[in-house]
Nucleic acid binder design. Structure first.
Length: 319
DNA sequence: AAATCACTCAACCGCCCATAT
DNA sequence: AATATGGGCGGTTGAGTGATT
């Protein structure tokens, strides 16, 4: 099945948009809405491909776009979300109001990627470039990887929900789950299936998240997909997994943090090492070497990643 | 002052997915 | 079921611009 071109290229203008073209596009959309992008250029009097119009609108002309320098908070959010989602720019953008995926992608490629590299972190994996994991570390990293996959899927589902909510105004508010705590009592990991199970009970409200998704990391993806708009609280019982003993009665965010600690503890065993030198203005570290300060940075780096995903994108304190 | 290099970012391209026919 | 189409996404490009030699 051949894919036809999105529009006839003959006679169509390419390259940078002129102020006149911007004005035409803006005026048309403000008056009529964009409707079919394919049909828009002719109606708006533009010699452009519909796709080009859509791009210009979504990345530049849309009124709800924030331009200019990224704040520290935004940078941190991008890095953390990238650690979980990878190059899923639209999903990342859905967590950064008023920023476009294109802008975030550019910012990542030109600034953040380099910065992480300088810090000795592989921007693709968010792991130390020199990591040589022991079997135990590998096991824990695998566990963390499972979690990351869960969170990745969940965040994507949430991003989808945000997108759909923008279109379907009649939908009820997003699933602002009432404060709910899950006391993790037992946690088991099936190494064959990779499944995660936990016995949990619900109790009081979780700290640190003003609007949390306490189901984070513990509900199967199907639970997200089966989100019942009429009854947002109707989530199925929780299940979780890990191959290690975990403090019982941990409130979820602490529990997740505990996972990080396990991984980082192992990193610490092998890599903790102090030395002289300077990394990006951090005294006492040489590039590519681990020092205690850097270890703390790492700890907080991953803790931030995991804490972040335990806050819903809907009005979470991150933004 | 001119040439070269490095960087940024708007825009394009090709692919994929969902939906319509 | 097969095909066509529109919209969206991520990767890449290249013009513009500032910094350096």
């Amino acid at each position: 099945m051949g894919r036809s071109a999105c529009c006839e290229k003959v006679g169509l203008k390419k390259g940078p948009w002129t102020p006149e073209e911007d004005q035409k596009l803006l005026a048309y959309i403000q008056q009529h809405g964009h409707g079919s992008w394919r049909a828009l250029p002719a109606k708006a009097g533009l010699r452009r491909c519909g796709k080009s119009c859509r791009l210009r609108w979504t990345n530049y002309l849309r009124p709800d776009i924030k331009r200019g320098k990224f704040s520290l908070q935004e940078e941190q959010t991008i890095i953390q979300l990238h650690a979980l989602l990878g190059n899923r720019w639209s999903a990342i953008a859905s967590h950064l109001p008023k920023r476009t995926d294109n802008e975030i992608k550019n910012y990542w490629n030109t600034h953040l990627k380099k910065r992480l590299s300088k810090m000795g972190i592989d921007p693709a994996t968010h792991k130390r470039k020199t990591d040589a994991l022991s079997p135990r570390q590998l096991k824990d990293a695998t566990t963390l990887s499972h979690l990351a996959q869960w969170e990745s899927a969940r965040l994507e589902a949430e991003a989808r929900f945000v997108r759909e909510s923008k279109v379907l105004h009649h939908l009820p508010p997003p699933p602002t789950v009432a404060p709910l705590h899950l006391d993790v009592q037992t946690v088991k990991y099936n190494p064959i299936s990779g499944a995660i199970f936990a016995t949990t009970t619900t109790s009081a409200a979780a700290p640190n998240c003003s609007l949390e998704s306490p189901i984070s990391s513990i509900h199967p993806l199907s639970a997200i997909h089966q989100y019942d708009a009429a009854n947002p609280m109707n989530f199925p019982a929780a299940a979780f997994s890990m191959d290690a003993a975990v403090n019982t009665n941990a409130v979820l965010p602490d529990f997740v943090e505990g996972l990080t600690d396990i991984l980082l503890e192992n990193m610490n065993d092998q890599e903790l090492n102090s030395s002289g030198g300077v990394v990006d203005g951090v005294p006492g570290c040489d590039v590519g070497e681990i020092c205690s300060g850097e270890f703390e940075e790492n700890t907080s780096y991953w803790n931030n990643v995991l804490n972040l995903v335990n806050c819903s994108p809907f009005g979470s304190p991150v933004f």
